Amino acid sequence: MASNGSSSYHHGNLRQELMDLAEKHLVDTGVHDLSLRALAREIGVSQTAPYRHFKDKNALLAALATEGFRRFFDVCRPSEMEERSDQSILLFGLAYARFAREHTAMFHLMFGPTLQPRNQYPELFAAGREAIYKVRARVEKGLQRGELRPLDDIASIAHTIWAAVHGVTTLMLDHADTYGYHRDIDLQAEKSMRMMIAGLCVDPSGIATLPETATHYPPVPA
């Protein structure tokens, strides 16, 4: 096994092997017991080999979280194809919640406190900025086309949308016993987002024209 691991490393695959194995441990056991040396032993390379790619465990986790954002953007892409900005924002919220449900450990790594402050990890910081800029672009388009009400400046509206979507998603993940207890929790999350976004719309009837669930979304990447 050691020779195979060393061979993989010399062929330039060790970085990806480390990320793949780290993600498996992230899902199975969390981040606290994760270490580069333990991953190296499991792969079958020297305990110093991982440090050629990551200076420490958090650097590895930051790379993993950045990859999580790339997958998240893929899941959100259909929302960017919606012509109406209010519908686009709703589908973004639904994709956000779905990604969190299907990749909960990755979601917590992407948005949780483990990797703080974010500006220590430039690629991860840039990915997070890209995410909020995507929401801002939807808001700007909606204001220009008269689809959203000009309640405040673009940045404030975008951050309010993000806070609301994230709040609904966090309640769904962490407080399912009380949030949505009287109905299917995914349906409750969708209803909450519909009500929130309808409040931003000049004509809320556009939200009602969307189907009850975003069944046209592709599977979330593994």
Rank of each mutant, 00 (worst) to 15 (best):
L200A: 04
T169N: 04
A163Y: 09
A155E: 12
H175V: 06
H166D: 06
H159M: 14
D186C: 11
H166S: 10
E140T: 11
I157G: 04
Y179W: 10
R145Q: 10
Q144E: 09
G142W: 04
D152F: 09
V168E: 02
E147Q: 15
A163C: 03
T170D: 07
M196G: 01
L173C: 04
L171C: 13
L151P: 00
G142H: 05
D153R: 06
W162P: 00
Q188C: 14
T178W: 12
L148A: 12
D184L: 03
R145E: 11
H182I: 02
L148T: 04
Y181D: 08
A158C: 11
A155S: 13
E140C: 07
I197K: 03
L151C: 09
D186R: 09
Y179H: 11
A176C: 03
R194M: 13
G180V: 10
L171T: 11
A155G: 01
T178F: 10
E190T: 12
A137I: 05
H182S: 06
S156G: 05
L143F: 04
H166N: 14
L200E: 11
L200R: 01
M193R: 02
G199V: 13
R138A: 14
R194D: 10
A198M: 14
I157S: 05
H175T: 08
D153W: 02
M172R: 15
H166I: 02
A158I: 06
Y179M: 09
A176T: 02
Q144P: 00
K141R: 11
H182R: 12
Y181Q: 05
R183T: 13
G180M: 12
A155V: 08
I161F: 12
I197Y: 00
R149G: 01
S192V: 03
D186K: 08
R183D: 10
M196N: 04
D177C: 05
L151A: 10
G167M: 09
T178H: 13
A189S: 08
H159S: 10
L143A: 09
I161Q: 01
G167A: 14
Y181V: 08
I157H: 00
A163F: 06
M172H: 09
I161M: 04
Y179L: 14
Q188H: 04
W162G: 05
T169V: 08
V168W: 00
G146M: 02
D184T: 03
H182F: 11
A163D: 07
A137G: 04
R138W: 06
I154P: 01
G142Q: 06
L173Q: 08
Y181E: 06
